[in-house]
């Protein structure tokens, strides 16, 4: 799965990025690369056993939620 996600990131980077580069929209390209990088990091983190940000949020907020809801 990790490999597939990386492949997808690469494909998106190529398909979306090259036109951006050609049009000289460097800022867009940078933001897009950062987003792809985040996706990449998330997958790598999962691969290395780090929890996803949603799980962190869950750990933080679930007790509050359990206190309110049944």
């Amino acid at each position: 799965m990790t490999a597939l996600i990386m492949l997808a990131a690469l494909a998106i980077g190529l398909v979306e990025g090259i036109p951006l580069g050609k049009q000289g929209q460097w800022k867009e390209l940078a933001v897009m690369s950062i987003l792809l990088g985040i996706a990449f990091l998330l997958v790598m983190g999962y691969y290395l056993g780090l929890p996803s940000p949603l799980v962190l949020m869950e750990r933080l907020l679930e007790p509050v939620g359990k206190a309110i809801f049944k």
């Binding site: 494909a11 398909v15 979306e16 090259i18 036109p19 050609k22 049009q23």
Partner: peptide, 17 residues
């Protein structure tokens, strides 16, 4: 859109599909 990049995206989409 530039026509060229549109085609490329379509191509990619079709390949994925």
């Amino acid at each position: 859109m530039d026509k060229g990049c549109l085609t490329m995206r379509k191509l990619a989409f079709i390949v994925v599909c």
